[in-house]
């Protein structure tokens, strides 16, 4: 199904860039606020080209994220697959709504993913000292969503991926 589209390479490249942004060093006091770039990009492609973008590629990149973060293998993949599934099912409603509505929807999904990751952390016995700060990336992600959306949409349109 991917073979019809010759510019499909943009998708893995954008996911790689998201991964690089995730492991890029930041000053220590900014680290807890780092948005979940990979989820944002995955959610965009899930919404824009649901027929081409499946769980497989997202899962692979989420596993790479797990390895880079030293978390349990599959921890991020679990959360990401769940929220991607929601987006794939609901892409028609989300696509036509306004930026603000979209951003709120994305924020809920990002919170859900973080909750799942935290949940697994809790089961394995790792603790987080500041629970409120832990959910900050979701809100930052919500604020960044319009920019991510516009940038990726322009790239998608200029390369005729549909």
């Amino acid at each position: 199904m991917m073979t019809h589209c010759k510019n499909y390479w943009v998708v893995p490249v954008s996911l790689s860039i998201a991964l690089v942004l995730t492991i890029m060093p930041l000053p220590p006091h900014l680290q807890p606020f780092r948005p979940d770039w990979l989820s944002l990009v995955v959610l965009y492609w899930g919404m824009a080209i649901p027929s081409r973008f499946g769980l497989g590629l997202a899962c692979l990149f989420a596993l790479l994220l797990d390895v880079s973060q030293g978390t349990l293998l599959g921890q991020h993949a679990f959360g990401l697959c769940l929220i991607l599934y929601v987006v794939l099912r609901m892409h028609r409603q989300v696509r036509v709504s306004s930026f603000i509505q979209q951003a709120l929807f994305i924020a809920v999904l990002l919170l859900l993913k973080q909750l799942l990751v935290l949940w697994v952390d809790g089961i394995v016995g790792r603790s987080v000292e500041n629970l409120w700060l832990y959910f900050a990336p979701s809100l930052i992600g919500m604020l960044l969503w319009p920019f991510v959306f516009i940038i990726l949409r322009d790239i998608r349109r200029s390369l005729h991926i549909r």
């Binding site: 899962c59 596993l63 293998l73 599959g74 993949a77 679990f78 769940l82 599934y85």
Partner: peptide, 18 residues
């Protein structure tokens, strides 16, 4: 989904996924 859950479980309990 189920695959990643299984992966997590095996990673936590065993060393097979090294």
């Amino acid at each position: 989904m189920a695959l990643s859950a299984a992966a997590m479980l095996t990673d936590h309990r065993h060393q097979h996924l090294q």
